[in-house]
Design a protein around this nucleic acid. Structure first.
Lengths: 157, 157
DNA sequence: GACAATTAGATTGCGTGCTATAGAATTCAG
DNA sequence: CTGAATTCTATAGCACGCAATCTAATTGTC
Protein backbone atom coordinates (compact mmCIF):
# COMPACT_ATOMS: atom_id res chain seq x y z
CA UNK A 1 0.00 0.00 0.00
CA UNK A 2 1.02 3.59 -0.63
CA UNK A 3 3.52 3.06 -3.37
CA UNK A 4 1.48 3.52 -6.51
CA UNK A 5 1.61 6.85 -8.25
CA UNK A 6 -1.60 8.69 -9.03
CA UNK A 7 -0.68 9.50 -12.60
CA UNK A 8 2.11 7.82 -14.52
CA UNK A 9 4.75 9.84 -12.68
CA UNK A 10 7.89 8.43 -11.10
CA UNK A 11 9.05 9.22 -7.59
CA UNK A 12 12.38 8.66 -5.96
CA UNK A 13 10.77 7.25 -2.85
CA UNK A 14 9.11 4.57 -5.00
CA UNK A 15 12.32 3.24 -6.45
CA UNK A 16 13.64 0.09 -4.86
CA UNK A 17 16.78 0.60 -6.89
CA UNK A 18 17.41 3.83 -5.02
CA UNK A 19 17.33 2.07 -1.66
CA UNK A 20 19.92 -0.40 -2.87
CA UNK A 21 22.03 2.32 -4.49
CA UNK A 22 21.90 4.29 -1.22
CA UNK A 23 22.74 1.29 0.90
CA UNK A 24 25.71 0.42 -1.28
CA UNK A 25 27.14 3.91 -0.94
CA UNK A 26 26.45 4.00 2.77
CA UNK A 27 28.44 0.78 3.07
CA UNK A 28 31.49 2.02 1.19
CA UNK A 29 31.34 5.23 3.23
CA UNK A 30 31.30 3.21 6.44
CA UNK A 31 34.17 1.01 5.30
CA UNK A 32 36.35 3.91 4.25
CA UNK A 33 37.74 4.89 7.66
CA UNK A 34 38.23 1.26 8.69
CA UNK A 35 40.05 0.38 5.49
CA UNK A 36 42.07 3.58 5.48
CA UNK A 37 44.02 2.18 8.42
CA UNK A 38 44.99 -0.71 6.11
CA UNK A 39 45.76 1.58 3.19
CA UNK A 40 43.00 -0.03 1.11
CA UNK A 41 39.93 1.13 -0.73
CA UNK A 42 36.80 -0.98 -0.63
CA UNK A 43 37.29 -2.74 -4.00
CA UNK A 44 40.94 -3.28 -3.15
CA UNK A 45 39.84 -4.86 0.12
CA UNK A 46 37.55 -7.23 -1.77
CA UNK A 47 40.42 -8.24 -4.02
CA UNK A 48 42.64 -8.91 -1.02
CA UNK A 49 39.87 -10.94 0.62
CA UNK A 50 39.66 -13.04 -2.53
CA UNK A 51 43.43 -13.52 -2.46
CA UNK A 52 43.49 -14.40 1.23
CA UNK A 53 40.95 -17.07 0.42
CA UNK A 54 43.15 -18.65 -2.22
CA UNK A 55 46.20 -17.67 -4.19
CA UNK A 56 47.61 -17.31 -6.71
CA UNK A 57 44.59 -16.32 -8.73
CA UNK A 58 44.47 -15.11 -12.30
CA UNK A 59 43.02 -11.76 -13.29
CA UNK A 60 40.20 -13.59 -15.04
CA UNK A 61 39.44 -15.62 -11.93
CA UNK A 62 39.36 -12.52 -9.75
CA UNK A 63 37.14 -10.85 -12.31
CA UNK A 64 34.65 -13.70 -12.15
CA UNK A 65 34.61 -13.77 -8.37
CA UNK A 66 34.09 -10.04 -8.05
CA UNK A 67 32.19 -9.48 -11.29
CA UNK A 68 34.73 -6.93 -12.45
CA UNK A 69 36.41 -6.78 -15.83
CA UNK A 70 40.00 -6.11 -16.75
CA UNK A 71 39.25 -2.45 -17.33
CA UNK A 72 38.69 -2.12 -13.61
CA UNK A 73 41.03 -4.79 -12.31
CA UNK A 74 44.17 -4.02 -14.29
CA UNK A 75 44.76 -0.56 -12.83
CA UNK A 76 43.55 -1.66 -9.39
CA UNK A 77 46.02 -4.55 -9.34
CA UNK A 78 48.79 -2.25 -10.46
CA UNK A 79 48.05 -0.05 -7.48
CA UNK A 80 48.12 -3.04 -5.15
CA UNK A 81 51.43 -4.04 -6.70
CA UNK A 82 52.77 -0.51 -6.27
CA UNK A 83 51.68 -0.69 -2.63
CA UNK A 84 53.75 -3.86 -2.25
CA UNK A 85 50.77 -6.07 -1.45
CA UNK A 86 50.71 -8.36 -4.51
CA UNK A 87 52.93 -9.52 -7.35
CA UNK A 88 51.82 -9.97 -10.97
CA UNK A 89 53.43 -12.67 -13.01
CA UNK A 90 52.78 -14.13 -16.45
CA UNK A 91 52.14 -17.85 -16.30
CA UNK A 92 54.95 -19.81 -17.98
CA UNK A 93 52.84 -22.30 -19.91
CA UNK A 94 50.30 -19.68 -20.98
CA UNK A 95 51.69 -16.22 -21.36
CA UNK A 96 48.25 -14.71 -21.79
CA UNK A 97 47.29 -15.18 -18.17
CA UNK A 98 48.65 -13.16 -15.27
CA UNK A 99 48.80 -14.67 -11.81
CA UNK A 100 48.30 -12.46 -8.80
CA UNK A 101 50.00 -13.52 -5.59
CA UNK A 102 49.98 -11.69 -2.25
CA UNK A 103 53.40 -10.68 -1.00
CA UNK A 104 54.39 -11.51 2.58
CA UNK A 105 53.24 -7.98 3.41
CA UNK A 106 49.95 -8.61 1.66
CA UNK A 107 49.43 -11.82 3.61
CA UNK A 108 50.40 -10.12 6.85
CA UNK A 109 47.67 -7.55 6.26
CA UNK A 110 45.12 -10.27 6.91
CA UNK A 111 45.72 -10.13 10.62
CA UNK A 112 44.98 -6.42 10.75
CA UNK A 113 41.95 -6.94 8.50
CA UNK A 114 40.32 -9.56 10.67
CA UNK A 115 38.65 -7.04 12.88
CA UNK A 116 37.01 -5.25 9.91
CA UNK A 117 34.01 -7.57 9.40
CA UNK A 118 33.21 -7.48 13.10
CA UNK A 119 33.36 -3.71 13.25
CA UNK A 120 31.23 -3.37 10.12
CA UNK A 121 28.75 -5.81 11.55
CA UNK A 122 28.22 -3.72 14.62
CA UNK A 123 27.83 -0.59 12.49
CA UNK A 124 25.15 -2.17 10.33
CA UNK A 125 23.01 -3.03 13.29
CA UNK A 126 20.73 -5.66 11.79
CA UNK A 127 19.92 -9.02 13.27
CA UNK A 128 21.17 -12.35 12.01
CA UNK A 129 17.68 -13.23 10.83
CA UNK A 130 17.36 -9.98 8.91
CA UNK A 131 20.76 -10.51 7.39
CA UNK A 132 19.83 -13.96 6.12
CA UNK A 133 16.56 -12.66 4.69
CA UNK A 134 18.36 -9.74 3.05
CA UNK A 135 20.98 -11.93 1.44
CA UNK A 136 18.38 -14.36 0.18
CA UNK A 137 16.34 -11.66 -1.52
CA UNK A 138 19.38 -9.83 -2.88
CA UNK A 139 20.76 -13.06 -4.27
CA UNK A 140 17.55 -13.75 -6.14
CA UNK A 141 17.35 -10.18 -7.38
CA UNK A 142 20.92 -10.12 -8.64
CA UNK A 143 20.55 -13.49 -10.30
CA UNK A 144 17.35 -12.36 -11.98
CA UNK A 145 18.96 -9.16 -13.28
CA UNK A 146 22.01 -10.98 -14.58
CA UNK A 147 19.84 -13.43 -16.53
CA UNK A 148 17.01 -11.35 -18.05
CA UNK A 149 15.18 -14.38 -19.48
CA UNK A 150 13.47 -15.00 -16.19
CA UNK A 151 9.90 -15.89 -15.40
CA UNK A 152 8.84 -14.01 -12.29
CA UNK A 153 6.15 -11.57 -11.14
CA UNK A 154 6.54 -7.84 -11.35
CA UNK A 155 7.69 -5.80 -8.34
CA UNK A 156 8.60 -2.13 -8.47
CA UNK A 157 11.74 -0.65 -10.03
CA UNK B 1 24.40 -21.54 10.54
CA UNK B 2 27.25 -22.17 8.15
CA UNK B 3 28.61 -18.72 7.89
CA UNK B 4 31.25 -18.59 10.59
CA UNK B 5 34.86 -18.99 9.58
CA UNK B 6 36.95 -21.70 11.16
CA UNK B 7 39.89 -19.45 11.97
CA UNK B 8 39.77 -15.69 11.93
CA UNK B 9 39.86 -15.59 8.14
CA UNK B 10 37.58 -13.54 5.94
CA UNK B 11 35.71 -14.88 2.95
CA UNK B 12 33.97 -13.07 0.14
CA UNK B 13 30.94 -15.30 0.42
CA UNK B 14 30.54 -14.26 4.05
CA UNK B 15 30.34 -10.57 3.35
CA UNK B 16 26.86 -9.11 3.33
CA UNK B 17 28.40 -5.95 1.96
CA UNK B 18 29.46 -7.84 -1.13
CA UNK B 19 25.91 -8.93 -1.85
CA UNK B 20 24.73 -5.36 -1.65
CA UNK B 21 27.66 -4.10 -3.71
CA UNK B 22 26.92 -6.76 -6.35
CA UNK B 23 23.22 -6.02 -6.38
CA UNK B 24 23.84 -2.30 -6.82
CA UNK B 25 26.07 -2.90 -9.82
CA UNK B 26 23.67 -5.44 -11.29
CA UNK B 27 20.98 -2.77 -11.07
CA UNK B 28 22.94 -0.06 -12.83
CA UNK B 29 23.94 -2.60 -15.48
CA UNK B 30 20.30 -3.50 -16.01
CA UNK B 31 19.26 0.15 -16.20
CA UNK B 32 21.96 1.06 -18.68
CA UNK B 33 20.29 -0.15 -21.88
CA UNK B 34 16.89 1.21 -20.82
CA UNK B 35 18.28 4.62 -19.94
CA UNK B 36 20.50 4.75 -23.00
CA UNK B 37 17.36 5.21 -25.07
CA UNK B 38 16.73 8.37 -23.02
CA UNK B 39 20.34 9.51 -23.25
CA UNK B 40 20.72 9.28 -19.47
CA UNK B 41 23.04 7.51 -17.06
CA UNK B 42 21.61 6.06 -13.87
CA UNK B 43 22.55 8.95 -11.55
CA UNK B 44 21.35 11.41 -14.17
CA UNK B 45 18.06 9.51 -14.27
CA UNK B 46 17.74 9.83 -10.49
CA UNK B 47 18.31 13.58 -10.73
CA UNK B 48 15.66 13.89 -13.42
CA UNK B 49 13.24 11.83 -11.32
CA UNK B 50 13.83 14.23 -8.46
CA UNK B 51 13.18 17.17 -10.78
CA UNK B 52 10.03 15.62 -12.27
CA UNK B 53 8.80 15.31 -8.71
CA UNK B 54 9.25 19.00 -8.00
CA UNK B 55 11.12 21.88 -9.58
CA UNK B 56 12.99 24.09 -9.44
CA UNK B 57 15.27 22.54 -6.87
CA UNK B 58 18.57 23.85 -5.60
CA UNK B 59 21.79 21.90 -5.88
CA UNK B 60 21.80 21.50 -2.11
CA UNK B 61 18.27 20.17 -2.12
CA UNK B 62 19.09 17.63 -4.82
CA UNK B 63 22.17 16.66 -2.88
CA UNK B 64 20.13 15.96 0.22
CA UNK B 65 17.54 13.94 -1.67
CA UNK B 66 20.12 11.82 -3.46
CA UNK B 67 22.82 11.92 -0.80
CA UNK B 68 25.32 13.33 -3.26
CA UNK B 69 27.54 16.35 -2.73
CA UNK B 70 28.43 19.17 -5.05
CA UNK B 71 31.58 17.40 -6.14
CA UNK B 72 29.40 14.84 -7.87
CA UNK B 73 26.39 16.96 -8.71
CA UNK B 74 28.08 20.00 -10.24
CA UNK B 75 29.61 18.20 -13.20
CA UNK B 76 26.57 15.94 -13.56
CA UNK B 77 24.25 18.95 -13.74
CA UNK B 78 26.52 20.60 -16.26
CA UNK B 79 26.18 17.55 -18.46
CA UNK B 80 22.40 17.62 -18.11
CA UNK B 81 22.51 21.30 -19.02
CA UNK B 82 24.72 20.58 -22.03
CA UNK B 83 22.21 17.91 -23.07
CA UNK B 84 19.50 20.56 -22.98
CA UNK B 85 17.53 18.88 -20.20
CA UNK B 86 17.91 21.43 -17.38
CA UNK B 87 18.80 25.07 -16.80
CA UNK B 88 20.99 26.34 -13.97
CA UNK B 89 20.28 29.78 -12.58
CA UNK B 90 21.55 31.72 -9.57
CA UNK B 91 18.74 32.74 -7.27
CA UNK B 92 18.27 36.51 -7.29
CA UNK B 93 17.83 37.07 -3.56
CA UNK B 94 20.64 34.64 -2.64
CA UNK B 95 23.37 34.44 -5.20
CA UNK B 96 24.96 31.49 -3.44
CA UNK B 97 22.27 29.06 -4.45
CA UNK B 98 21.72 27.67 -7.94
CA UNK B 99 18.27 26.59 -9.01
CA UNK B 100 17.92 23.67 -11.38
CA UNK B 101 14.87 23.65 -13.63
CA UNK B 102 13.97 21.10 -16.29
CA UNK B 103 13.66 22.53 -19.78
CA UNK B 104 10.58 21.69 -21.85
CA UNK B 105 12.68 18.93 -23.37
CA UNK B 106 13.60 17.69 -19.90
CA UNK B 107 9.96 17.63 -18.85
CA UNK B 108 8.96 15.91 -22.07
CA UNK B 109 11.42 13.14 -21.29
CA UNK B 110 9.16 12.06 -18.43
CA UNK B 111 6.73 10.47 -20.84
CA UNK B 112 9.43 8.30 -22.37
CA UNK B 113 10.74 7.48 -18.89
CA UNK B 114 7.46 6.26 -17.51
CA UNK B 115 7.93 2.77 -18.83
CA UNK B 116 11.34 2.42 -17.16
CA UNK B 117 10.20 1.45 -13.64
CA UNK B 118 7.82 -1.13 -15.04
CA UNK B 119 10.48 -2.70 -17.22
CA UNK B 120 12.97 -2.74 -14.36
CA UNK B 121 10.37 -4.29 -12.09
CA UNK B 122 9.88 -7.20 -14.43
CA UNK B 123 13.63 -7.68 -14.74
CA UNK B 124 14.13 -7.80 -10.98
CA UNK B 125 11.64 -10.57 -10.57
CA UNK B 126 10.88 -10.36 -6.87
CA UNK B 127 7.49 -10.33 -5.27
CA UNK B 128 5.81 -7.34 -3.69
CA UNK B 129 6.22 -8.89 -0.26
CA UNK B 130 9.90 -9.48 -0.80
CA UNK B 131 10.31 -5.96 -2.06
CA UNK B 132 8.70 -4.50 1.06
CA UNK B 133 10.86 -6.67 3.31
CA UNK B 134 13.98 -5.74 1.37
CA UNK B 135 13.27 -2.02 1.57
CA UNK B 136 12.52 -2.22 5.27
CA UNK B 137 15.79 -3.95 6.08
CA UNK B 138 17.85 -1.79 3.74
CA UNK B 139 16.33 1.32 5.23
CA UNK B 140 17.31 0.27 8.74
CA UNK B 141 20.78 -0.73 7.59
CA UNK B 142 21.43 2.54 5.79
CA UNK B 143 20.10 4.58 8.68
CA UNK B 144 22.28 2.64 11.09
CA UNK B 145 25.39 3.16 8.97
CA UNK B 146 24.73 6.86 8.53
CA UNK B 147 24.41 7.33 12.29
CA UNK B 148 27.18 5.24 13.89
CA UNK B 149 26.10 5.96 17.48
CA UNK B 150 23.55 3.22 17.29
CA UNK B 151 22.65 0.58 19.80
CA UNK B 152 21.94 -2.62 17.92
CA UNK B 153 23.04 -6.25 17.84
CA UNK B 154 25.92 -7.46 15.69
CA UNK B 155 25.27 -9.05 12.29
CA UNK B 156 27.96 -9.90 9.77
CA UNK B 157 29.89 -7.43 7.66
C1' DG C 1 52.27 -26.48 -40.25
C1' DA C 2 49.53 -22.16 -41.73
C1' DC C 3 45.68 -19.33 -40.66
C1' DA C 4 41.34 -18.00 -38.71
C1' DA C 5 38.96 -17.77 -34.41
C1' DT C 6 39.24 -17.40 -29.61
C1' DT C 7 41.06 -15.95 -25.17
C1' DA C 8 43.54 -13.05 -21.53
C1' DG C 9 44.96 -8.61 -20.31
C1' DA C 10 45.90 -3.90 -21.02
C1' DT C 11 44.58 0.69 -22.51
C1' DT C 12 41.55 4.63 -23.51
C1' DG C 13 37.81 7.44 -22.54
C1' DC C 14 33.82 8.85 -19.96
C1' DG C 15 30.92 9.38 -15.93
C1' DT C 16 30.46 8.93 -11.40
C1' DG C 17 31.55 9.29 -5.94
C1' DC C 18 34.23 11.33 -2.67
C1' DT C 19 37.82 14.34 -0.20
C1' DA C 20 39.87 18.55 0.09
C1' DT C 21 40.05 23.08 -1.13
C1' DA C 22 38.63 27.45 -2.78
C1' DG C 23 35.60 31.40 -3.59
C1' DA C 24 31.72 34.15 -3.34
C1' DA C 25 27.60 35.54 -0.88
C1' DT C 26 25.12 35.86 3.40
C1' DT C 27 24.52 35.90 8.27
C1' DC C 28 25.99 36.71 12.83
C1' DA C 29 28.47 39.11 16.86
C1' DG C 30 29.81 42.86 19.03
C1' DC D 1 28.55 48.73 10.71
C1' DT D 2 32.45 45.59 10.34
C1' DG D 3 34.97 41.52 10.66
C1' DA D 4 34.28 36.57 11.51
C1' DA D 5 31.81 32.54 10.88
C1' DT D 6 28.70 30.08 7.93
C1' DT D 7 26.53 28.58 3.72
C1' DC D 8 26.33 27.26 -1.11
C1' DT D 9 28.57 25.95 -5.13
C1' DA D 10 32.52 24.94 -7.99
C1' DT D 11 37.03 22.83 -8.92
C1' DA D 12 40.96 19.56 -8.61
C1' DG D 13 42.53 15.10 -7.85
C1' DC D 14 42.04 10.17 -7.14
C1' DA D 15 39.89 5.64 -7.70
C1' DC D 16 36.50 3.02 -9.41
C1' DG D 17 33.09 0.69 -13.19
C1' DC D 18 32.33 -0.13 -17.73
C1' DA D 19 32.27 -0.05 -22.93
C1' DA D 20 35.23 -0.22 -26.74
C1' DT D 21 39.42 -1.23 -28.70
C1' DC D 22 43.93 -3.26 -29.05
C1' DT D 23 47.74 -6.65 -28.65
C1' DA D 24 49.69 -10.90 -27.80
C1' DA D 25 49.21 -15.69 -27.10
C1' DT D 26 46.82 -19.97 -27.78
C1' DT D 27 43.58 -23.15 -29.88
C1' DG D 28 41.15 -25.23 -33.55
C1' DT D 29 40.75 -26.53 -38.49
C1' DC D 30 42.17 -27.97 -42.44
Amino acid sequence: MSKSNRSGSVELSDLLCFDIYSAARAITRAYRPLLATLGLTYPQYLVMVALWESAPRTVKDLGESLELDSGTLSPLLKRLEAAGLVTRQRRRNDERTVEITPTPGGRALLRAAERVPTEMASLMGISGAEERKLRTILGRLTASLDRPADGAPAPKA
